[in-house]
Simulated assay, not measured.
Amino acid sequence: MIRDADRLGFIADIQMVKKLIFSLLLLSASELCFASAASSPSPLVIPADQIKEGCTVEFISERPTNETNAPGSQPHEIAVKWICKGVATATIDRYQVEGGSPQIITTLFLKRKIFVALAKWPVTSHASDFQGDFYKVYIYKYNRESNTHPFIRDDKMMDKFGLGWDGVKDGITVTYPFKDAALIRSRLNQLKIINMNRTRS
């Protein structure tokens, strides 16, 4: 009887160990799935109720249409989309690969009709002897009359922010003066564009 009891206890212990191992395997698998999902790119979504209620601006990473980079690299463009309930999605703009992939730094909405985005690209150019980042301020005016082209890019206003070199050029350190929301806001105030509201910084 003692031997049978010991045998039953041993079998029970084995079954418990099997259950524990199975639980650990499930936990590891779920962690791997979570890590994979977390590492995959997701769009940056900015609520745009200040322009139109129920709308968002989404920055979506996409592979370049003309891939020219070396194998193994993963450059991406950014498609800027206007998404509203009950209306077809519209493309506001597309930021292409320029030496490196673009990155969104900050966004602004102002006066309920203007949308501003700041993007940057990492740049290493031996031809121009520059290493650092290139920034660009994009300014769009909301076009209420069109669902297919809801924003018009204001290149004239964008020119007032100059070239966005920030790094070392020809051995000299250069700093772009408008590389965050506060600096852009200050410049827009100088240009007499006021009543700004930040959505992301």
Rank of each mutant, 00 (worst) to 15 (best):
F178R: 02
P177H: 07
W82V: 12
C84A: 10
Y142W: 15
H149R: 06
D180M: 08
K179A: 03
T107W: 01
M158G: 02
V57K: 03
E77L: 01
S128R: 14
G54N: 05
L44Q: 09
A127S: 09
P75W: 05
C55S: 15
Y138D: 04
S61G: 02
L44M: 06
G132K: 07
G132W: 08
D155V: 15
W121D: 02
T68A: 06
E145D: 13
R198C: 12
W165C: 00
D4G: 00
N143L: 06
K120P: 01
F134T: 07
W121A: 03
K113A: 07
E98L: 15
H126I: 06
D133T: 13
K19F: 03
V97C: 14
F34G: 00
L32C: 05
F115Y: 15
E77N: 12
N147C: 01
Q96N: 08
V116G: 05
S23T: 10
L118A: 04
S186G: 06
L25G: 00
H149E: 13
G100A: 09
L163S: 12
I139K: 01
Q96I: 07
T148Y: 07
L26T: 03
A79P: 00
T56V: 14
R3P: 01
E77T: 10
Y95D: 05
L8W: 05
T107I: 04
A88H: 04
I139S: 02
Y138T: 04
L163F: 07
Q50R: 14
D155P: 00
D154N: 12
I194L: 06
L188M: 15
L27R: 07
V45D: 09
A127Y: 07
M158P: 03
E67Q: 14
D13W: 02
C33D: 04
S39F: 04
T148Q: 08
C84E: 11
S201E: 14
I83H: 10
V174S: 02
A90S: 15
G72S: 09
P102F: 10
Q50L: 14
F134N: 08
L110D: 02
E58T: 09
A38S: 04
D133S: 13
S61Q: 13
T175A: 14
A12K: 14
V116Q: 10
Y95V: 12
D180P: 07
Y140E: 02
E98W: 11
T65M: 14
Q50A: 15
R7S: 12
D154C: 03
Y135W: 09
A182W: 10
V168Q: 15
S125W: 10
Y142K: 02
T148V: 13
L188K: 02
A5I: 15
G9T: 08
T89M: 10
I139L: 10
A29E: 11
V123R: 11
L118R: 00
L118V: 10
R198A: 13
D129Q: 12
A79V: 11
L118E: 05
D159K: 13
F10N: 07
Q96K: 11
A117N: 05
A119H: 01
I51V: 15
G167W: 09
L183S: 15
F130P: 05
Y138R: 12
T148S: 11
A117S: 14
K141H: 12
W121T: 04
L110P: 00
F59P: 00
P102C: 09
R94G: 04
K19W: 00
